[in-house]
């Protein structure tokens, strides 16, 4: 693992103030879109409603994890520690929805 050593003076660069504010803006905009979509009855009735909400929510999730939790910039080990369990949790959730005939 000697090649994996992150040297004391932080191999990773954290994003800057400016980036943080852009990220916040994006999160805000996506949330507004989500709530907006909720109030368009025709869209709620359409087949695109659930997938588009899931995509928007996932986008917010990924943005926070990558930028605010620095996973994009940090040691690859942290990425593994997070995505492994997340995938297992996601697969289990989907399996339950099938088993209980929800999808």
């Amino acid at each position: 693992m000697s090649t994996d050593r992150a040297h004391a003076d932080h191999a990773h660069e954290h994003p800057t103030w400016k980036q943080y504010k852009w990220v916040a803006l994006w999160l805000f905009v996506i949330t507004v879109l989500e709530v907006w979509a909720y109030y368009i009855p025709a869209f709620v009735a359409s087949k695109a409603f659930v997938p588009s909400l899931l995509i928007m929510s996932a986008a917010k999730f990924v943005i926070v994890v990558m930028f605010y939790m620095h996973l994009k910039y940090d040691h690859h080990l942290f990425r593994k520690l997070f995505t492994g369990p997340l995938i297992i949790a996601g697969c289990t959730l989907v399996a339950f929805l099938f088993l209980f005939a929800k999808v």
Binding site: A6, L81, I88, A89
Partner: peptide, 21 residues
């Protein structure tokens, strides 16, 4: 330390993984 990373930060990420479940 082997990786040069902080013990508690590794434990916190493992904890977050657990919280996903």
């Amino acid at each position: 330390t082997t990786t040069g990373l902080n013990h508690r930060k590794i434990a916190m990420w493992a904890f977050i993984g657990s919280e996903c479940m």
